[in-house]
Amino acid sequence: MNVHFSNYICSICGRGFVTERLYSRHVKRHATEELKCKDCEKIFGNKEKLRNHQKLVHLGDAKRSKCLICDERFMDYRQKILHMVKLHGAKEPSLLCQVCNRQFNDQRNLTKHIKKDHLLERKHKCQECEMVFFSSTTLKVHMAKHTGLRQFKCDICLKAYARKNTLREHMRIHANDRRFGCEQCGQAFVQKCSLRSHMRSKHGTTL
């Protein structure tokens, strides 16, 4: 949305932003301070970069999720569970959706599922049409239909696509990745739609 609705333009690098808050936060990143990390020798250009470095690299208060078996600490609950399963043989947790009985390995995925599939939460609305979406990522992909923006380009043939997944599928052509095989004649195809077309025209069946 910052790309398509640039109300505030950075005079240093030219990037645009929807809100003044996002713009102000970005401008601070251009500040030329020299801030040294108190735990190592690295130097950073602003306080935000220094703060992010300390959270990610040094323990501090960031790694609060402690393993129940050893003293290892982690950034979040999911990392802790993976550690306990792999290193200590703990049982993978299983959370059950009370509506459809689907199982999830952590509370975050279960909550996301309930909001998206059962509560039908759609907070992200397209400004160009009436469509609404659960996530900002899905909205961003949708916006390409209105703008015609094709930012994902193939390095080999220079074809450009609006979606990263479409480019990934296209790259299988160059790799000759024929993962979709016909069970009747053995002919293989790069894309599933090509296999469907083959099944209809050659064998008179649908996939």
Rank of each mutant, 00 (worst) to 15 (best):
I9M: 11
M84K: 01
L22W: 04
C10G: 10
D117V: 11
A162W: 00
E41T: 13
Y8C: 00
N2R: 05
H118N: 13
N109A: 12
L95M: 14
F152T: 09
N165G: 08
H203W: 03
Q98E: 15
N101A: 15
L59C: 09
G14D: 13
A188F: 05
H142A: 13
K125M: 07
C37E: 10
Q151W: 01
M171C: 03
K55I: 06
C100E: 07
R73E: 07
C67M: 05
K38I: 04
L110W: 10
A175V: 04
A31Y: 00
K140Q: 08
L195W: 06
G181P: 06
A175F: 01
C185P: 03
I173V: 15
L139F: 06
L82F: 05
K47T: 15
M75Q: 11
T32H: 00
H170P: 05
M131N: 12
K202V: 15
H30R: 05
K159Q: 12
C193G: 01
K115I: 01
K28C: 14
C70A: 06
H174Q: 12
A162Q: 06
E169N: 14
L59P: 05
D61E: 13
K47V: 07
P93F: 06
K116F: 00
E130A: 12
V85S: 03
N101L: 15
R179H: 04
C154Y: 00
V141H: 07
T166D: 04
A188N: 05
L96H: 09
N109Q: 09
